[in-house]
Design a protein around this nucleic acid. Structure first.
Lengths: 146, 146
DNA sequence: TTTACTGCAAATCTTTTGCATCAAC
DNA sequence: GTTGATGCAAAAGATTTGCAGTAAA
């Protein structure tokens, strides 16, 4: 019971793409695998490196175009953790938040419940609907604090 | 009592620069004015536009180089609000946080007290020292929510 | 006069786009 | 055989850098 869905997620996505008139290509398959095999958030460059290792001629623009498609279909979430580079993760893995250590780059995941009080405050006091899917909190982790 | 310091901030900064062996140029003076006159966080491009209005030949690389210097001296804080563009504000103005509307781009400022509970939780549960100076929370404001 | 600062142009770096070719269906 | 997808090269947008000339001290 590793996956959220009953079928393998890759198969689901392939089916979904086909149904919508998109095509399954080796490039797309490998890009999907790269995203799904990554626990952490992965960047376009990292996806590309991983794909190229097996299938040398894939261009990074194909990665970007595939990510754009997957975003549009709601299969992948794009997160701007700063640093001028987007990061991606499978939407099915649910949303979590990030404590990013500015020293060592490690990220700690938080779940929704820990930010719920904040969300409530923002809504009540500022009538602001916070999109906490895309939240990254910078700082320093234990190991780096000294 | 507008300023945190007793002397005008611009004068302080000029003195400080001179003491450290840096030079006061018209470009630097105007860049400093642009940063200080902005309540909100200002981008390099916005600073440049404001400076060029009065002093047409200033190059944007001068803006970047001045910002780098001011950062190094701790006079200006650089914030990565995402969108692949840094924003700057005077360090003396203290830190506040941002609710950024993804629809209209408006920002609502929060002060430290509203995020204090969160900071405490992160410290206690995750031993993570959150640098909330650099926090931006994305979402939708009242006007855009519908 | 010394050398820090500036303007300009060119280089980076990430992401996007135009276009001709290729391959999934 | 259609037409959506790909690779390549070039563009775009923000920031950085090399260099020769300029100006603050």
């Amino acid at each position: 019971m590793e996956d959220v869905n009953h079928n393998g997620p890759a198969k689901d996505i392939a089916t979904l793409l086909t149904q919508k008139g998109y095509r399954i290509t080796p490039q797309r398959t490998m890009i999907l695998e790269a995203i799904q095999s990554s626990d952490q958030h992965i960047s376009a460059e990292e996806i590309h490196a991983q794909v190229v290792a097996k299938y040398p001629n894939v261009n990074i623009s194909t990665v970007y175009r595939t990510l754009e498609l997957l975003k549009k279909l709601g299969l992948v979430t794009e997160t701007d953790l700063g640093g001028g580079r987007f990061r991606y993760h499978p939407a099915e893995k649910g949303h979590h938040h990030h404590l990013v250590c500015q020293e060592c780059g490690n990220t700690i995941d938080l779940d929704n419940s820990e930010l719920y009080p904040l969300k409530e405050v923002l809504l009540k006091k500022h009538k602001f609907i916070a999109d906490l899917q895309h939240l990254a909190i910078m700082g320093r982790c234990v190991n780096c604090k000294k």
